[in-house]
Design a protein around this nucleic acid. Structure first.
Length: 877
RNA sequence: GGGCGCAUAGCUCAGCGGGAGAGCACUCGGCUUACAACCGAGGGGUCGCAGGUUCGAACCCUGCUGCGCCCA
């Protein structure tokens, strides 16, 4: 066989993998060649994922990096499996956040959005987007996201806006959208309504002030954390059964500072145990009070404007709510009405999730989605398995939420967003306008000034991005999407919304088959990353320093369903090391002529090592397949890491060196096995580490691209148990000899003459050469005398190794080693015998378990006997 | 207040009925021609506490303690 190898030309990989120099070009080539562009007319089965649209103002953070890595792993694997993959990218317009950004910019010019007027302001936002928006899209390229850029969407683009208007009209016509005056969460800084989930609650220090209303035996004491709201009180409520207040129910008291008289009402929702059992009722500024007000037909008095500034009420007019609070308390104190003050008083306070301003409950007219029937359908779709949530523990949280969902406040008092398509006529007409309809013209008609919640449009994302409301080819092909991958923290914000709208708009067809919810990124100590804590890790920094593959591998390897992930620099370095290892191993294989040009020879022409590693590859393929299917990214990566490093590199490559060194047909066969293994391994790793594998694979195979290569299938050959047992024997032999050498202080490189016996009995006759090479033992010369020896127990028999150490052996070290082994064997024996002595164990345990324990006892007994003999034979024993 | 989850090696985490695992960190020895971003060897754990079920429990059940998250 000729040694002139066609592959020598391509064996000149650079000695080092330098991701920063090649990743960018590789990515652009993938995009140019259209690998990520989905073909709606192919006959492949579809696999669809829509990106959780990042915020147009945002930049890539670790949470995105994790989410995108997982999606990219899923889609790249499916593409290799022959699916027509669509990973659809895009962004949402982030109403409040974007408006804030542009308003801040205007503020620097000393202007407000009102100075510009609505139209000019919106124009200005578009300009801002064109100039600064969507930074994240460029950053996604650096990560390697295999998205279909030709289908990129934006929630404010024409098609998606049309979708918004279409569904609004449909919901309106079906009576599922209505307008009502209620208490909503109001952000006085953003000056807009917020939905319940846009409010974050925290326990803050405040004060609890007890105030006496009325005089003498007609007085009553109420406690409040928001004293200023007393200006808007229209009643005091007590529990109907509260004996303390029976005489007061139905009477009136004078409300201090205002001179108004307000009734004392009985309401079963008052908790008589809390405080004095009497509560002030401010229907316009508290959701519970609003309900009490409804039940008792009380007036609702709004005492603040949209900025949280007190309106009217004499001396308090014009004060901010937080200035008004002490002012009101002082005035009450002056009148001797403060009965008690408690500071600090810790209580839950709602904050705007966008700007952290304390939310002000406020009575106002807003648009709502009536969610009851939609939520029922959303619940049903998960209950009957049309959509399954992974990990399943989180399904419960989903049910708890949708089964008790409150109507959704969808109007926002902003300018940036989808304007509510409702027109009001001069005579009180209310007309909802569909996308193809002309708005009513003429004198006195006005469009509703508000826009819709951003989540309203992102709730349509899985189908609006595919062309809905038109029945497009994309929609037919790619809906329902295969899986939604996102963090569990936006289950309610977004996932639920998509379920509501998807089922409604698509005639009961669910928006995704699976929902996979991953955890949140934390720092090395498990703490949440935050700018204020200064523990934020920037993925771009890791991209620069370790490469995209290292970042991706770190994130994928750490992703365990339902669990958060702690990250530290060392993890990234470890992943980078893994890529380097893969690089070096591949370089070695290529330098030694690894090839895919020749098929792997028939099994009976292969060595034990070949058969073992091919079987292990097969097992790894199955294992990794199963784990990826179950969204077990972390374990899949671990399995790949272990196979690559601990089995392929540490053992097979070392054994292959021996096989190649022998030359001839064996060497050629080994080159084919190496080529086949590397080919499959690179394919398996490609979804997680696409860049380094692409370079190595194209070098190995001269193929066009790994992106469009086939995912490895199991060979299906019957596992060779004999080969596996023999390689396990070789491994034990090598490890034990290395341990002995290490204990005896022999340098790793130092060659030592040795005689091995008993290999035949242990069924390892053919492996002596490999063992000698791996542990640097030379053949015994004439007149060899072993000055030291060790015995290694193997299933078939005991192998004895006699070494010429040409010097005194370290007896103490040897005794330590043997004593330790003896203790372990004795512990093992004791454990086995205890079990076997128990008749209930031998009766009830499965036969194979009992047999296994019996076998372990025999092994332990033999070990003990052998070790004891060695110990007794040691000098000075 | 209601609900959910987690407590396993120094750190971060897998394992979830039959031999305690990984990565990183640590100790010792090595530039052994793929790899010092590495190689070889090693140390380290009453699997939170207390009960129960079982022939057998890190794993299932109950209670407790301590953390975390979600919702009010």
């Amino acid at each position: 066989m000729t040694e002139t190898l066609p592959h020598q030309a391509r064996a000149d990989l650079p000695p080092q993998w330098t991701p920063a120099e090649v990743e960018g070009d590789l990515y652009e080539r993938w995009v140019e060649r259209g690998y990520f562009t989905a073909d709606a007319d192919s006959d492949r089965p579809p696999y669809t994922i829509v990106i959780p649209p990042p915020n147009v103002t945002g930049t890539l953070h670790m949470g995105h990096a994790l989410d995108h890595t997982l999606i990219d792993v899923l889609t790249r694997r499916r593409r290799m499996q022959g699916y027509e993959v669509l990973w659809l990218p895009g962004m949402d317009h982030a109403g409040i956040a974007t408006q804030n950004v542009v308003e801040r910019e205007l503020a620097k010019e000393g202007k407000s959005r009102h100075d510009l007027g609505r139209e000019a302001f919106v124009e200005r936002v578009w300009q801002w987007k064109a100039e600064y928006g969507g930074k994240i899209l460029g950053q996604m390229r650096r990560l390697g996201d295999g998205v279909d850029w030709s289908r990129e969407r934006f929630t404010m683009d024409e098609g998606l806006s049309r979708a918004v208007q279409t569904i609004f009209k449909k919901l309106f016509d079906d009576g599922l959208i209505y307008r009502a005056e209620r208490i909503i969460n109001w952000c006085p800084r953003c000056r807009t309504a917020l939905s319940d989930i846009e409010v974050d609650h925290s326990d803050d220090d405040g004060e609890l002030i007890s105030i006496r209303y009325g005089e003498g035996d007609r007085s009553i004491v109420v406690a409040t954390t928001r004293a200023e709201t007393m200006l808007g009180d229209t009643a005091v409520a007590v529990h109907p059964d509260d004996e303390r207040y029976q005489h007061l129910i139905g009477t009136e008291v004078e409300l201090p500072l205002t001179g108004r008289h307000i009734p004392i009402v009985a309401d079963p929702h008052v908790d008589p145990e809390f405080g004095t059992g009497a509560v002030k009722v401010t229907p316009a500024h508290d959701p519970n009070d609003f309900e009490i007000g409804q039940r008792h037909d009380l007036p609702a008095l709004t005492i603040m404007d949209e900025r949280g500034v007190i309106t009217a009420h004499g001396p308090f007019e014009g004060l901010d709510r937080f200035e008004a609070r002490p002012a009101v308390v002082a005035a009450l104190r002056q009148q001797g009405r403060i009965v008690a003050e408690k500071r600090p008083y810790t209580h839950a306070v709602g904050h705007c999730s966008r700007c952290d301003t304390v939310v002000e409950p406020r009575l106002s007219m807003q648009w709502w989605v009536k969610v009851e029937s939609l939520a029922r359908a959303a619940s049903e779709a998960v209950r009957d398995g049309r959509t399954s949530i992974h990990p399943p523990e989180l399904a419960r949280r989903y049910f708890d939420w949708v089964d008790d969902m409150h109507d959704w406040c969808i109007s926002r008092q902003l300018w940036w967003g989808h304007r509510i398509p409702v027109w009001y006529g001069p005579n009180g007409e209310v007309v909802c306008v569909g996308p193809d309809e002309e708005p009513p013209g003429g004198e006195g008609w006005q469009q509703d000034p508000d826009v819709l919640d951003t989540w309203f449009s992102s709730g349509l994302w899985p189908f609006s991005t595919l062309g809905w409301p038109d029945r497009t080819r994309d929609l037919e092909r790619f809906y329902p999407t295969s899986v939604l991958v996102t963090g569990y923290d936006i289950l309610f914000f977004w996932v639920v919304r998509m379920m509501l709208f998807g089922l409604y708009a698509m005639d009961g067809e669910q928006p995704f088959h699976d929902v996979f919810l991953h955890g949140l990124i934390r720092d090395a100590a498990g703490k949440k990353m935050s700018k204020s804590k200064g523990n934020v890790i920037d993925p771009l920094d890791w991209l620069d320093r370790y490469g995209a593959d290292a970042l991706r591998f770190t994130l994928a390897r750490g992703a365990n369903p339902g669990a958060d992930m702690a990250l530290a620099e060392e993890w990234a370095a470890g992943s980078r090391n893994f890529c380097t290892k893969l690089w070096n191993a591949s370089r070695f294989a290529l330098m030694n002529g690894a090839t895919v040009a020749r098929p792997v020879p028939a099994r009976d022409r292969l060595t034990d090592a070949d058969r073992w590693i091919l079987d292990r590859l097969d097992e790894t393929v199955s294992e990794v397949d199963g784990l990826f299917e179950a969204y077990q990214f972390g374990r899949a990566c671990d399995a790949l890491y272990h196979f690559t490093w601990d089995e392929f590199c540490d053992w097979y490559l070392e054994l292959a060196k021996v096989q190649i060194a022998g030359g001839g047909e064996r060497a050629e066969a080994t080159r084919a096995v190496l080529g086949h293994l590397l080919d499959a391994l690179l394919r398996l790793l490609h979804p997680v580490v696409p860049f380094v594998t692409e370079v190595l694979w194209t070098t190995l195979t001269s193929g066009e691209s790994l992106v469009i290569a086939e995912w490895p299938a199991r060979r299906g050959a019957e596992r060779d148990g004999t080969a596996a047992r023999r390689i396990a024997g070789v491994q034990k032999l090598v490890t034990e000899i290395r341990r002995f050498r290490s204990d005896q202080g022999l340098k790793p490189g130092q060659r030592v003459a040795a005689r091995l016996s008993g290999l035949g009995e242990a069924d390892l006759a053919g492996h002596e050469g490999a063992v000698r090479t791996l542990v640097r033992l030379d053949a015994p010369a004439d007149g060899f005398t072993g000055s030291a020896s060790l015995e290694i127990g193997l299933p078939g028999g005991t192998v004895t190794v006699e070494l010429d150490l040409s010097g005194a052996i370290d007896v103490a070290a040897e005794r330590r080693r043997l004593t330790k082994d003896l203790a372990a064997a004795e512990k093992e024996l004791a454990g086995c015998e205890a079990k076997l002595a128990n008749p209930r164990f031998t009766d009830k345990a499965p036969a194979d378990v009992v047999a296994k324990i019996r076998g372990r006892r025999e092994t332990a007994l033999a070990d003990i006997e052998r070790i004891k003999a060695r110990l007794a034979a040691l000098p000075g024993a």
